[in-house]
Design a protein around this nucleic acid. Sequence first.
DNA 1: ATGCAAATTGCAACCGATTGCAATATTTTT
DNA 2: AAAAATATTGCAATCGGTTGCAATTTGCAT
Lengths: 350, 350
Amino acid sequence: MSKEKEITIYDIASQLGLSAATVSRALKDHPAINKHTKKKITDLATKLGYRSNTFASNLRKQKTNTIGVIFHELRSQFMVAVLAGIEKITTEANYDLIIGHSSETYEKEAANARNLFHKRVDGIIASLAFDTEDLNHFAPFVQKGIPVIFFDRVFENSDGAKVIINNRKAGYEATKHLVEQGCKRIVHVTANLKRNVYAERLAGYKQALTEAGIKFKEKYLIINDLTEKASVEAAKKVLAMSPLPDGIFVTNDFCAAVIIQTLKEAKINIPEDIAIVGFNNDVICKIIEPKLTTINYPGTEIGEIVARSLVSHLQGNANMHLTNTIIIKSELIVRASSLRKKLPKNTSKK
Amino acid sequence: MSKEKEITIYDIASQLGLSAATVSRALKDHPAINKHTKKKITDLATKLGYRSNTFASNLRKQKTNTIGVIFHELRSQFMVAVLAGIEKITTEANYDLIIGHSSETYEKEAANARNLFHKRVDGIIASLAFDTEDLNHFAPFVQKGIPVIFFDRVFENSDGAKVIINNRKAGYEATKHLVEQGCKRIVHVTANLKRNVYAERLAGYKQALTEAGIKFKEKYLIINDLTEKASVEAAKKVLAMSPLPDGIFVTNDFCAAVIIQTLKEAKINIPEDIAIVGFNNDVICKIIEPKLTTINYPGTEIGEIVARSLVSHLQGNANMHLTNTIIIKSELIVRASSLRKKLPKNTSKK
DNA sequence: ATGCAAATTGCAACCGATTGCAATATTTTT
DNA sequence: AAAAATATTGCAATCGGTTGCAATTTGCAT
């Protein structure tokens, strides 16, 4: 209630008979300032409860110390993990975060980009929405020299910086695992193929099939939006197939979990009748019965790495644009939902 | 790359032969400015790609247009839902959000508070960590007249503004439901009783027992931190009890799900041997087998309501401190995990 | 045409921190 | 002890928008 006056460097300066310039330098530990003076200043500053005015500072420095984050969706374990990783690094480096989410639409993604542009963020971290087809909405940043770094959902052929996993390899390993478990009719449930992650996983799926001498069939490819409703429908499609498929590689754990539910309700045995592999290693994998084999997609690490490259780029310690693409390791985690024979020894268990 | 010069109101002013003051007023639609002049100014502004400098503005206005959010944990459906609700409202009202999470420790919560204080947020939305015992770290805000509003985890007897559900009633209904299903030995798994939500739910649990003529037993009260590990241990404790309990009211869905898993592995039938009720209505409720009876705790609505009261307080449209406490409706959702008889007609199904 | 109220616009002083360069103080060197 | 070198500190402009008050213009009645 009592609106006490804010302490400024001028207050400190006058109380100590110094200039504001000296106080400013002392508070940021400038080498030119005498140690003794510095101590007097910092002591008085803490005593008076001084807090630096970010706006004055930003205004003068023409920097915001803020990083913008554009997510396609926040309600997933993976994304929250990424966010936690980003937050850890940016907090350490003293950057603020402004977070926007696109709810998977291009329109909102572009609106978020505009907003962040107006807020003058120093840099952008983004993962694309389902239906984003170009990067024009990021052009203003590029023009102004504001760094943009993508992760997970990216345009592989764009020349922006990006952090991804080898989705093709992950898809390949997931599918190969199903083949090794004896599956012959393997369905692949995935999302919009415009997105690299899904296109690549599909490519890996096809490669594994080809290597196993199994012909890819269009009817075994189910594309949806990974919602609960769509997942139930996907399961029903599978149930309607004849002969029944014996394996499903789903590109998302939640969707896989719902499919397992639906199949179980239809009295399908998992993994005996149909073996299932998911993607992401969400907690849900260990809740669902049987526990879900999946690809571990290390969100926190990805977040940390993305943030770290951006921050060190901003601080001039490294040029993000040189190390254009960073590929993070992912791995297959075998659990009960796909396990028909004994565990192959080249995969991890957890 | 090309660092084009930023357009300022001075550029617009000089190109139009006007003063910066007029441009400033025109851009914020000040009534004193001639309509015709206004149009010329806004037109040129958009043509030049003018973007207002928030720092200069904030510096002058001594406001940040930023709201700070302190969460105890982000990795839960409920919290993300709350966040989504908050974001919706604050974005509409053109406020930025700075989000910090305490990972359930007082220390980090206080650090976040300090940080937000230094960032000079206009207001604070917070939910307390497990081990927070006082609100001293929020005192600086109160002193400066910065509004703080709590939700979910609050101090009930503090005089700050808060948005909560009737946890006692929810706990009562959950327990009563178990009683109605014929349970006699009902375990309650919950977390730190310092937190109102848990203390109140426990009170409701006790009340329902008393009404049913069942004596409360200390050994049926299990307090943990709701992690996966702790949940497994809780389940083991239950399994070690003799006679075996026939009902469990768990204060968190995830924890309940893990307990169900663990009990199932021990060949306990649910709900026949032990009926279980959770809390929150996370998606996990519908994934777990059997599906989990729970209390619906409407996160998005809570977020919206919290944010709305704060925003309208900040805008002077309402005084948050008058409507001190807002209580949101919650409800029991009955699913298979607790259903032994037919559905009582006074509860909803979903 | 003159006077006065109302409508527009401009002046200038903020807001608080930063920083190149100049000025002063302190040490070191000769 | 004077000169030179180094260490400290201060001056003053700058970042861009806001706002109380004054100045100017316009509109309208007399």
